[in-house]
């Protein structure tokens, strides 16, 4: 009896480990040697430490890695990434690059902030790029996005597209960065449809990785009569798409506005109205090139908004968004870039 029980327990544990292994075993090919291009800067090395996700997350980390791959193609810089699996490994992953004398190490995500601060302090000669968080150190270049500006534009689309005059927002965790999405979105809706802004329903799922929570949050909002939801919730947002797909089967349409990348490419354009794109890849390329040119913006925080082409609506928006609405969007874009409109962030 005991023997059998032990056997099953062990098998279970083995299976658990194995399933973890399999989920991560997507085809990967990480080191891009720039040799093909003759590599003008192949003596330089840039690394990326993801937050506790993977470079295949269809979002933030993937975008950053695509940026580095682009950098490799264009300049020949050697690139490589590490994916810490436990939060204790964030610092050691950073150190892996630092101690191997990488010219620039990227860290993506606010969870990296403390680790970056420590590593940068201990190694004043290394350069670290930090996305989505801010560290005051002479050797750290922080990159923040003006999510509120992009969110404003999708807010305009939502405000003009909604038929029920009700829209909703699903956030991951109530952090300042996510709050910027919400506030910008609300301002955008308000600019074109004050009634919809007043009716806006906001839910924070409290989690970035729980599809089920996203789904139930979306269900609540759609049930109250909303027909468009903007999500800024990472993987939790996948649940919003799932819920919308189930509801869109009839003639009633339930729209989702995606985030970070063009999510219509992942979830199809039947429910994806548009996406608020954060061009992490562009930012990574830009700052890396500055480093190559000897203009590394250490100690500075770069804010990327509409003007800097750091945020935007997805290029595939033409598919589901009416042309006159897109025209309106362009008008607002101009106003924001010119500074005629300042989008609030809190």
């Amino acid at each position: 009896m005991k023997q059998t029980k032990k056997f099953w327990v062990l098998t279970l544990v083995a299976a658990l480990f194995f399933s973890v292994a399999l989920t991560g075993c997507g085809g990967k090919n990480k080191e891009e040697s720039g040799a093909a291009n003759g590599g003008a800067h192949s003596e330089l090395k840039a690394g990326l430490v993801t937050d506790l996700g993977s470079v295949n997350d269809k979002s933030f980390n993937q975008s950053a890695w695509e940026g580095l791959q682009k950098l490799n193609k264009e300049t020949g810089v050697q690139v490589k990434y590490l994916e810490p699996k436990k939060d204790t490994e964030i610092i050691t992953s950073l150190n892996q690059f630092v101690k191997n004398k990488y010219d620039l190490t990227w860290a993506t995500g606010y969870t990296m902030m403390d680790a970056v601060k420590q590593v940068a302090g201990e190694n004043p000669n290394v350069k670290i790029g930090l996305v989505d968080a801010e560290v005051q150190a002479p050797n750290v270049a922080s990159v923040l996005f003006k999510e509120q500006e992009g969110s404003f534009l999708v807010g305009v689309i939502a405000g003009l597209t909604t038929k029920s005059n009700k829209v909703g927002f699903v956030g991951g965790v109530e952090l300042p960065v996510i709050k910027r999405f919400e506030v910008g979105f609300r301002a955008g809706v308000e600019a074109v449809n004050p009634e919809a802004a007043k009716n806006m329903k906001v839910i924070y799922a409290g989690d970035f990785s729980r599809v089920d929570k996203g789904k139930s949050a979306a269900a609540t909002i759609y049930n109250e009569g909303a027909d468009i939801i903007f999500h800024a919730a990472g993987m939790t947002g996948n649940g919003v798409f799932n819920e919308a797909k189930e509801r869109s089967k009839g003639d009633k349409k339930a729209w989702v506005i995606g985030v970070d990348m063009d999510q219509s490419l992942t979830f199809g354009d039947e429910v994806t109205l548009t996406s608020m794109v954060k061009k992490v890849d562009e930012a990574v390329v830009k700052v890396s090139k500055d480093m190559i040119d000897g203009k590394f913006p250490g100690g500075k925080t770069t804010y990327l908004g509409l003007k800097e082409n750091g945020v935007d609506i997805a290029p595939t928006s033409t598919k589901n968004v009416a042309p006159d609405v897109l025209k309106k969007v362009e008008e607002f874009r101009e106003k924001i870039i010119k500074g005629e409109i300042t989008v609030p962030e809190k």
């Binding site: 098998t11 083995a14 973890v20 490589k80 590490l82 994916e83």
Partner: peptide
């Protein structure tokens, strides 16, 4: 991962194989 570009999942796999054979 760093030295030979092997995904960390391979290590998890090795561990799971070790457990598996100890189990059976």
């Amino acid at each position: 991962s760093f030295g030979a570009d092997v995904p960390g999942e391979v290590v998890r796999m090795i561990i799971s194989i070790i457990i598996f054979f100890t189990a059976a």
